[in-house]
Design a binder for these strands. Structure first.
Length: 175
DNA sequence: AGCAAGATCGGT
DNA sequence: CCGATCTTGCTG
């Protein structure tokens, strides 16, 4: 058969267990699938940011393990959801091995630019905190074979973090 | 117990 | 540029 190779698979634990700086750019072009009320919709990931370890002074893990960020200390593939500015839910994906707090903030989906915009549009709230992308019935990520070019820039809204954290190009955008 | 600041957004 | 809106984690 002369068809092109078409992958359509849910990302597994191994994908998320790698270092956050490897997983973040690899998430671009992947499809976030959310199933609600019996209807599954998918959205291409176009922008993300990496938060890496307790040393990262921009990360919620910079104060060590707390009630809010404890999910970051577990294994990769789980969702870390938190409320910012009292009104916007942030969608984060835990990465790396257990014990190493890492997470990726999903900043943009195709046609839904903005971390607060996309969660509002998809109805993602605190109830998604701790959801496992590897086994969840209502949210996961698929690889459909897209390999976009990746642009790197400094992260947004973290001016409180000193150097080198404010300047690290840990924001990844699809070209 | 109190408080300042926040991984944002939309309207002036 | 500023206000909305409320949780978090630090300080005392």
């Amino acid at each position: 058969m002369a068809g092109e190779k078409y992958t359509n698979i849910r990302l597994n634990r191994d994908f998320y267990s790698r270092d956050v700086l490897t997983v973040a750019p690899d998430l671009l072009g992947k499809n976030l699938v959310i199933s609600q009320a019996g209807i599954a919709e998918s959205f291409k990931i176009i922008e993300v940011e990496a938060y890496r370890g307790e040393d990262d002074q921009a990360s919620h893990a910079r104060f060590g393990k707390t009630a809010r960020n404890s999910i970051m200390y577990g294994e990769g593939g789980f969702l870390y959801i938190y409320l910012i500015y009292g009104m916007y839910w942030m969608l984060n994906i835990v990465t790396g091995p257990a014990g190493d707090p890492q997470a990726i903030l999903v900043r943009g989906l195709k046609n839904l630019p903005g971390p607060g915009v996309l969660t509002r549009a998809l109805g993602i709230d605190k109830s998604y905190h701790g959801e496992d992308l590897v086994n969840s019935e209502r949210i996961w990520i698929e690889d459909r074979g897209d390999k976009p070019l990746v642009i790197q820039k400094p992260r947004v809204g973290i001016s409180y973090a000193g150097e080198p954290w404010v300047s690290n190009a840990w924001r990844f955008i699809s070209a």
